[in-house]
Design a protein around this nucleic acid. Sequence first.
DNA 1: GATTGTTTCAAACAGACGTTTGAATTGTCA
DNA 2: TGACAATTCAAACGTCTGTTTGAAACAATC
Lengths: 222, 222
Amino acid sequence: MAEDARGRLIDAAGRAFAERGFEGASVRDICSDAGVNVAAINYHFGDKQSLYVACLEQAQCSESRQTLRAADPSLPPEARLHGFIRGMLAAQGDPDRPRWHNSLMLREMAHPTAAAAAVLQRYIRPLADTLREILEQLSPGVSEMPHDGWPVGFSVVSQVLFYAVHRPVVRLLMGEAEHDALDVDFLADHITRFSLAALSRGPNIVGLSAAPSAGTRKTVPR
Amino acid sequence: MAEDARGRLIDAAGRAFAERGFEGASVRDICSDAGVNVAAINYHFGDKQSLYVACLEQAQCSESRQTLRAADPSLPPEARLHGFIRGMLAAQGDPDRPRWHNSLMLREMAHPTAAAAAVLQRYIRPLADTLREILEQLSPGVSEMPHDGWPVGFSVVSQVLFYAVHRPVVRLLMGEAEHDALDVDFLADHITRFSLAALSRGPNIVGLSAAPSAGTRKTVPR
DNA sequence: GATTGTTTCAAACAGACGTTTGAATTGTCA
DNA sequence: TGACAATTCAAACGTCTGTTTGAAACAATC
């Protein structure tokens, strides 16, 4: 809490926007949370909309770098895919990074604001390019498939995004206890195996995961 | 437009809530769209919140039935899976059904309202049960996998939900023209093949889809 | 036609909203 | 210490919010 007013405002606003949306979060609540006067928004950012954009930019900075770093180009493609998937999953629950960074980005991805389409481009495009590169490395020819192979990439990332967007549904269906047992490592392994099997680069899902899974990573080198 | 005021209000409100969220949609805009007086909300529903619940219930009625019908139990499991996936995809763009039904449900799934958790349960649960039944039929033993096989089911539905939730991102990445070429039949085939291959119930994705795909459905009987 | 009950209407309500103001406070450098 | 800029503050701005009111319009029954 030793930050300056500007930093505290971005943090409080980011949490509020991620949780209740742009319209649902009031400037009075945000300022009260940040421990500053309502006029501080006008002084530091101009208006509420600009504060929102500032939050979006902050969220963008910390996000994609982490995922891209996890997909180390020097590794074999199977391990790169696993790193990519694990990186995206880990970003969701990274304690080093405010949780609202991801939620806010997801909100923006589902219902883009006019002012933030550019931010989205810079945020998404590098991730998409990296994944496509990994997939092409993994299964040469995937880029020549219908629609330039986009659907294959979407089939991979969709599995990751699902746990970020539809977490409430997962909790509802599995039950509180069982849901909490789903950790990043398990999900990363599952999604990687599912995707590799679909690309015929590993044994099928059922046969593999029926074996004891904890700690053993035979098909997914790290 | 021959509906009564109550029906027109639900329709206008549903569109507004789906597009701009609960807080973002004002009762004045809704009433103006519906061509009724502002007091009509209070008269027919009590308040804005109750109008929202009425929209949610209306959206629920038309949705899951359609998908469940498409997964005809008398068919072989591969065809049932294809029907299930196609049914969910078709519901997204069904012209017989207001588009907001799906959007509103997705909003609720990502950020559930306290008042509507029950509606969500009734809406999701039958779909989940049916998919798990199909998967078990397809690959006996999937229910005994870690976490009762939920992650496998999630890997399938996530691919479908992706195109509903992240349509703006798809458009952004693929470009307007290429995006518009993605029709329901193609996506249903792709997602079914990807999932069947992951379960080792079909050829792998790349090998199959490199062949001419339009109209030929060898691995996915209907 | 009078008498019901139902539905619509213009107008107003109190409160919350985002934003602005001008004075008060703090920090910085001469 | 004095002067100047940067920052914070309580208070108020006008507008929009969801909701309510009581009268008017309508429909149906006798």
